[in-house]
């Protein structure tokens, strides 16, 4: 059964209003909250085949959460043919994680190629690759970063000394440094949203007084704080083209398992042997 939405249906969805998306996402979250209070992560009923792909992924995510953490393998699949370069994922991520200047978890690389009249543009969203063999982990001198059993690479902000060795070691430029800066500094007053806490790794992080995460390396963590509450990563939910898929690759019936078995799948810099958990459909 083909769960991924067709292009035609995608186009019709894209033309519908942003409000409709917001409502559908919120409905998903609300449904989840209700389920959570009842039975932890009871996945509930699978959505109908023609439902928004987000609902299927959310159902599968909650199904995966019923398993012990070491039996999950979170992967992300990004369909480059569907990406329109709107940067909604980047912005969604910035908002979700309250990212300051200099810190970005999921930029969208824009490339122009060809010679007129045969020219093209390509957009490549680049989250952390959550490598199976992460070059950034073994370099940390204080064991402040590691790979979780579900494959997500995380940083312990309280342990990171800010040496930035991991930033140099990442072959994807996926780690950035928090300089303790604010977008609205230099204006009459700092905007309150910049001082709101982020909830990364399930904790409240207030950026003030040079406390962590200021002075730390920071990176995409597949929105673990959301995932562990049964919600999809922010970038997956804000993608207007539904080009970002997220799920458990250890579940053979999951959408992501289907997608990464397609012949047009590729990963970045495979030759390095990092074995990324982010796949691209080209």
């Amino acid at each position: 059964m083909e769960w991924a939405i067709s292009r035609r249906r995608l186009l019709s969805r894209v033309t519908s209003s942003a409000l409709a998306f917001a409502i559908s996402s919120a409905a998903g979250v609300m449904r989840l909250s209700a389920a959570e209070t009842k039975t932890g992560f009871d996945p509930g009923e699978p959505p109908p085949p023609d439902a928004d792909v987000l609902l299927r992924m959310q159902y599968e995510l909650r199904k995966a959460l019923q398993k012990p953490v070491d039996q999950r393998k979170w992967v992300m699949v990004i369909d480059l043919r569907k990406c329109v370069g709107c940067h909604a994922c980047t912005i969604g991520c910035v908002v979700e994680n309250k990212l300051p200047p200099g810190v970005v978890y999921r930029p969208v690389i824009e490339e122009e190629f060809g010679t007129y009249p045969n020219v093209g543009r390509r957009f490549i969203p680049r989250p952390c690759m959550q490598c199976q063999n992460p070059p950034c982990v073994p370099v940390c001198p204080v064991n402040a970063t590691w790979k979780r059993p579900d494959g997500v690479i995380i940083i312990d902000y309280e342990k990171c000394i800010g040496c930035r060795y991991c930033i140099t070691a990442c072959p994807y430029n996926a780690r950035t440094f928090d300089f303790g800066e604010y977008f609205t500094d230099g204006t009459p007053h700092r905007a309150p949203y910049e001082e709101a806490p982020s909830f990364e790794y399930g904790k409240k992080w207030y950026r003030k007084n040079e406390d962590s995460p200021i002075g730390n390396a920071r990176k995409c963590h597949f929105c673990l704080h959301r995932v562990e509450k049964g919600q999809l990563p922010m970038c997956a939910t804000t993608c207007i083209g539904r080009a970002t898929y997220f799920g458990d690759a250890n579940d053979p019936d999951s959408l992501v398992s289907e997608l990464i078995a397609k012949p047009n799948v590729m990963r970045l810099k495979e030759e390095l042997g990092t074995d990324p958990h982010v796949y691209y459909l080209t």
Binding site: T90, P101, G102, V104, P107, V108, I109, E110, E111, I124, R126, C170, P171, Y172, N173, L268
Partner: peptide, 11 residues
């Protein structure tokens, strides 16, 4: 590390 990253996010 990836071509195009320099134009992807202005900061």
């Amino acid at each position: 590390q990836l071509r195009g990253l320099e134009w992807s996010y202005r900061d």
